[in-house]
Computed example of a mutant assay.
Amino acid sequence: MNTARYALSAACLSSALAAAGAASAADPDPAQAAFDEGVAHMEAGRFEQGCPAIEKSQQLDPRPGTLFTLAECEALRGRLATALARFDEYLALYPTLAPKQQRNQGDREKTARAQREALARDVPGLRLELPPDAPPSAVVELDGRRLAPTAIGPLLPVDPGKHLVRAQAPGVRAFERAVHLDRGEKRTVVLEMTAPPAPPPPAPPPPPGSAGGAGGTSAGGPSTPPATTPDTVGGGRRVAVYVTGGLGLVGLAVGGVTGALAMERKGVVDRSCAGTACNHEGKTAADAMKALGLASTIAFGVGIAGAGAAAVLLLTEPKAASAGASGGAWVAAGVVPVGSGGAALDVRGAW
């Protein structure tokens, strides 16, 4: 801050203090008390406290001298645009004063014009512009204050520092930006107001007869699950009977085949072994016989379990489902001998 340029007028400050001293003899009113407090802060360089106090005094008891002192305080505070506006108010008020009141102001009118000319060179300027397609109902705010339509476009004097610009209108996306301006800086901000993205198109309705389609739900009401009939219940049980029964038959068949192969290896062992002594062929056959015997035992166990489960499901099946299954699918498996000492698995069925 160039304090020499915006220094408080010594004569004006002296007259203000003299007026304050004269008034101290009487009971101080709130406006005078606020003014005295503000001037005391100004003398100490505490402009952040002094200017609001002087402004309060002006609001309680408007006086030309108080207005002039407030303008000088704001200039020293660094709020150049605010000080410029206060000097303009004072210069507009001065011609309306009586000749005696003008004489009491001393050199304030001359000082105010000089101060205003100096401030005008350093006050930052902010120009706000709306795009051509902006809606007529657009509302523009600067630092929380709504601007008149005539303020959109011209260069607005603002104080140095940070400012918040906001523009909004129904049906468009709000625009908001923080702008920082230094002393004497001029800037233009275009308030880019764009329409929000269009909502995605609605999903096409499902085809009639599908889940959630026509006939699946009532208008405005919750969907109702399809009615359960004996055929649908029996159909699920019937599939389980086929699966477990088929596994049981396959297990029995595999057990039979592996058992037959084990018996074949036993014949080789009897021919090639004498007691515990076996030649190479006998030993190989003995090892294969043990493995086939174990596989046969396991397969028979699986077959018996599967057949038992299928029997339980079949016996407990509802009559309607059982009746429908009598002429339906069937499956059968068995062991068929092949050649001398061989066997094959035979599985048959219909679905």
Score class of each variant (00 low, 15 high):
345 L>S: 10
47 F>L: 08
338 V>K: 14
97 L>E: 05
139 V>E: 14
120 A>C: 03
81 A>I: 04
120 A>M: 09
213 G>C: 11
174 A>E: 12
195 A>H: 08
73 C>E: 14
330 W>K: 12
111 T>L: 15
119 L>R: 02
130 L>V: 04
351 W>V: 10
311 A>M: 08
311 A>P: 03
131 P>N: 06
330 W>L: 09
131 P>A: 00
90 Y>M: 10
77 R>A: 13
61 D>W: 11
190 V>N: 05
278 C>M: 07
227 A>W: 08
213 G>V: 03
66 T>F: 11
203 A>E: 10
338 V>H: 13
153 G>I: 08
197 P>C: 02
272 S>R: 15
35 F>V: 00
8 L>Q: 04
293 G>S: 13
17 L>C: 05
50 G>V: 08
323 A>E: 13
158 V>E: 00
264 E>V: 04
188 T>C: 02
259 G>D: 14
127 R>N: 01
246 G>W: 11
13 L>S: 05
226 P>V: 01
186 K>Y: 00
18 A>R: 12
71 A>N: 08
19 A>V: 06
131 P>I: 03
120 A>H: 06
186 K>S: 13
119 L>G: 06
173 R>W: 02
291 A>Q: 13
135 P>F: 01
257 V>K: 14
160 P>I: 04
123 V>Y: 05
263 M>L: 07
83 A>M: 04
25 A>T: 05
35 F>Q: 06
109 E>D: 14
39 V>E: 05
307 A>R: 13
5 R>P: 00
284 T>L: 15
261 L>Q: 11
195 A>C: 00
257 V>L: 14
284 T>G: 08
112 A>W: 15
131 P>L: 03
334 G>D: 12
107 D>V: 04
45 G>Y: 11
47 F>R: 00
99 P>L: 07
350 A>T: 14
16 A>K: 00
197 P>H: 08
